[in-house]
């Protein structure tokens, strides 16, 4: 199986920004997930379709991390969201 190049958010998942973080809602799975402010910031950055380098830079600025730590945090977030089905893999072009 070819390894996907990208992850994306399924159509049936939406989100709401709340003062305590970000609430993910799955309309078909009847489930929700509350993201902390840090994770919510990462999710919000993903939705802006910014280049990866800029994304990592902004995470490092927002969360006060070194660039390597920001990259690792981003990676951890993606892994967890992929595992739980909040993101799904897509084939590369």
């Amino acid at each position: 199986m070819k390894k996907p190049k990208a992850l994306r958010c399924p159509e049936h998942i939406s989100w709401i920004v709340d003062c305590g973080g970000l609430l993910l809602l799955d309309f078909t799975g009847n489930r929700t997930k509350i993201l902390s402010c840090s994770e919510g910031a990462v999710w919000d950055l993903l939705t802006r379709n910014r280049p990866e380098k800029l994304r990592i830079f902004m995470i490092s600025v927002i969360l006060g991390m070194e660039m390597d730590d920001a990259a690792a945090f981003l990676s951890d977030c993606l892994e967890s969201w992929l595992r739980d089905g909040w993101l799904i893999p897509c084939e590369g072009a």
Partner: peptide, 30 residues
């Protein structure tokens, strides 16, 4: 207040995909 904007994120090199996840690209509803 719900939002949904389409986005795609490159898979970072360090991210290990589980075989199940890697085998289920783009579901039928996408």
């Amino acid at each position: 207040r719900l939002r949904h904007v389409p986005f795609a994120v490159p898979v970072p090199g360090r991210l290990a995909l589980s075989p199940q996840a890697a085998a289920s690209p783009c579901r039928g509803d996408e």
